[in-house]
Each structure stands twice: as C-alpha cells, then as structure tokens.
Deep mutational scan, measured.
Amino acid sequence: KGCNCRRSGCLKNYCECYEAQIMCSSICKCIGCKNY
C-alpha cells in the first residue's frame, strides 16, 4: 500500500513507507518526499 504524507517529507514513522524502510517510488507518493 502506498503512502501519501504531506508535511513530514515521509521521514516520520506514521508514513507507511518510512516505517517499512521503503524508499520513495511510484508506489510511495509522498509530497516532497525526502526518504531516499
């Protein structure tokens, strides 16, 4: 399942991608994603 966080840059544990240690991709559609 994808993540669509808006404010944290996908760097907080409530973002599913970050919590699962998945990098930003087409699945993880965080706005302004900084989780490289």
Rank of each mutant, 00 (worst) to 15 (best):
M23W: 06
C24A: 08
I22M: 03
S8V: 08
S8L: 09
C3H: 04
C5D: 00
C5L: 03
K34R: 13
N13A: 10
Y18H: 11
C10L: 04
C30V: 04
I31E: 15
C5K: 05
I22P: 11
K34M: 12
N13W: 00
N4Q: 11
S8G: 12
K29D: 14
C3W: 01
C30Q: 07
C5G: 01
L11W: 04
G2E: 12
G2W: 01
E19P: 06
C28A: 06
S8M: 05
C10V: 05
K34Q: 09
I22W: 04
L11G: 10
C10N: 04
L11K: 11
C5S: 05
G32M: 01
Y36A: 14
G9K: 00
S26K: 12
Y18M: 13
C30M: 00
L11V: 05
I27Y: 03
R7W: 06
Y36G: 14
C28G: 07
K12V: 11
I27S: 12
S26D: 09
S25Q: 08
K12C: 01
C5Y: 00
N13L: 06
N13Q: 10
E19M: 08
S26M: 04
K12H: 07
L11M: 12
K1M: 15
Y14R: 12
K34H: 10
E19N: 04
I31A: 15
G32L: 00
G9Y: 00
Y18V: 06
I27T: 14
C3Y: 10
Y36C: 10
L11P: 09
Y14V: 10
S26T: 09
C24K: 15
C3P: 02
N4D: 15
L11H: 15
K29M: 11
K34S: 13
S26L: 02
C17T: 01
S8Y: 02
I22F: 09
G2P: 13
E16P: 05
L11Q: 13
Y14L: 11
G32S: 09
E19C: 09
C24R: 04
I27M: 11
C33E: 13
G9I: 06
Q21N: 09
C5T: 03
C15Q: 06
E16I: 06
C33M: 08
G2V: 07
K1G: 02
R7P: 09
C5Q: 05
N4A: 08
G2K: 02
S8W: 02
R7M: 15
C24D: 09
N13K: 10
C15T: 04
S8F: 04
E16Q: 11
C30I: 00
C3K: 09
E16W: 03
R6G: 14
R6V: 13
A20E: 09
R6P: 13
C10Y: 03
C28P: 07
S26V: 08
C24E: 12
S25C: 04
Y14W: 11
C10Q: 07
G9D: 13
C24P: 07
E16A: 06
C28R: 02
I27V: 13
N13S: 08
G2L: 03
K1P: 00
C10P: 01
R7V: 09
Y36T: 14
Y14Q: 12
C33P: 11
K29V: 12
C17V: 03
C17M: 02
C17K: 05
K29N: 13
K29Y: 10
Y18W: 11
L11S: 08
C3N: 02
A20K: 05
N13I: 04
C33L: 07
C28E: 08
K12S: 08
S25R: 05
N13D: 09
E16Y: 02
K1W: 00
I27N: 12
C15D: 11
K29C: 11
S8A: 08
N35H: 00
Q21M: 02
I27C: 00
N13C: 02
S25D: 05
R7L: 11
R6Q: 15
K1D: 00
C3A: 05
C24W: 01
S8K: 09
Y14S: 12
E16G: 09
K29P: 09
E19W: 03
C33D: 10
C30K: 06
N13H: 00
Y14K: 11
C3E: 09
C5V: 00
R6T: 15
R6L: 14
N35P: 10
Y18F: 09
E19G: 11
M23R: 10
Y18S: 10
Y18K: 14
Q21C: 07
L11N: 06
K29T: 12
S26Y: 15
Y18R: 08
C5M: 06
E19R: 08
Q21P: 10
C3R: 02
C28V: 03
S25K: 07
G9M: 06
N35S: 11
Y18I: 05
E16V: 05
A20Y: 04
C5W: 02
C5N: 03
